[in-house]
Design a protein around this nucleic acid. Structure first.
Lengths: 214, 214
DNA sequence: ACTATCTGTTGACGTCGTGTCAATAGACAT
DNA sequence: ATGTCTATTGACACGACGTCAACAGATAGT
């Protein structure tokens, strides 16, 4: 089973051990919340001893920060089409936006436990908070605010929307709601559940920005 | 200055000391995040020793749970009028809803640091998580879902809204956004800022539920 | 006023997880 | 075979936690 896992008292290439630790952390977070993640608990899943951890990571907050690195970019990528788009009708914009939200949700389904761990860690450590809230989230807010500003200028969205604040509200809603839906380690995620979640998000975003519906 | 603060090696009535500890915790959280709140740090603000803490509270998570008790009810109270209301026009409903959101925001302005601390603690302790997320938040979601369901039935809101999921998205957005705006210990909260935040929240809620605007 | 009792209070202790460091022992080159 | 390099680890000190027996201030009874 754990063919590639690291065995005790053996030398490895630095990256090999580092990747083994990252994998062990991911595996751990699949079934346990971040608050139960201890350095010893993670290292037990590699064949290495606890002190070996500190050769590769400063502490467990550094560990989740690196876990985020592999995912952070994805969250931008999936939304890019809507984020940089413009000059469509409300109907068109809605469709593109709905697609972006659906892809974003799928990313959360896939990396839910890890993202939940990062979110939890952010409230416990100033460094993680910086990377996650003020790095990732804030950049998403800015990007969304840009798009909203353009939509207000082109008349797609009403001009009583304050782009910055509206963007922050919508992004924070999405983050929190998706974490709530897909971040629990135990939950098994069904396709119907995913559909309902995406539908609710699309409703709020589209009705807020493009006012389709009654 | 600290006339009523507890002095060392003196006996007190149980509630007197307990209230002093709760006050010390509130005061601590006014200027420090929860992650820096230690039992020793709190007790240093009373005249009591660290072990005395454990005569009144099980641990620091129990402490924030009790801090929440005094506030949790308020969040329901301010929204009650809209939550239990019905049979109004969209315009009327919007006004009542906007008022509820404004009052809710004011509660957050007032108790921001404490609520932030509770939210942070919820990710670190299963008991706090139970009280906060599955107690307070979930009950708010249910109440909002009820109201949405009635609005859908009476035709005020469109019937493609799924009440439960929409309610959860909106409530989580509001919680997260208000915490983000008013939960930082250092921030000085201006009246303009409050206004902008409430306006953004009202936009999203009203446009989602009652679709006013273009 | 003296004493006994009750109980709020605390110094001292054991525990747990952390982060560090000198010493150890594989792997590789010569 | 031998030496060098460095990944690895046992052992240590630290900080915060939660507990407990012992202490001492308040109160009641005489």
């Amino acid at each position: 089973m754990t063919e590639d896992s690291v065995s005790r008292r053996r030398r490895h290439r630095p990256e090999e051990a580092e990747r083994a630790i990252l994998a062990a952390a991911r595996s751990f977070l699949e079934s346990n919340p971040f608050r139960e993640m201890t350095v010893e608990g993670v290292m037990a899943r590699t064949g290495l001893s606890r002190p070996a951890f500190y050769a590769y990571f400063r502490d467990r907050y550094d560990l989740v920060t690196r876990l985020l690195e592999g995912i952070g970019g994805l969250l931008f990528a999936v939304d890019r089409r809507w984020l940089v788009g413009a000059e469509e009708s409300r109907k068109e914009a809605s469709v593109v936006l709905a697609d972006a939200l659906r892809r974003g949700a799928e990313t959360f389904v896939r990396y839910g436990p890890v993202l939940r761990a990062i979110s939890d860690a952010a409230s416990q450590d100033a460094r993680v908070e910086g990377v996650y809230r003020y790095g990732l989230i804030e950049r998403l807010v800015d990007a969304v605010a840009d798009r909203i500003e353009r939509d207000v200028e082109t008349g797609l969205s009403p001009d009583d929307l304050e782009p910055e604040e509206t963007a922050r509200a919508l992004v924070l809603m999405t983050e929190r709601y998706l974490l709530d839906a897909f971040g629990k380690p135990e939950e098994c995620t069904t396709r119907e559940k995913t559909g309902a979640v995406v539908e609710a998000l699309v409703s709020v975003w589209v009705r807020t920005l493009y006012g389709l519906g009654p």
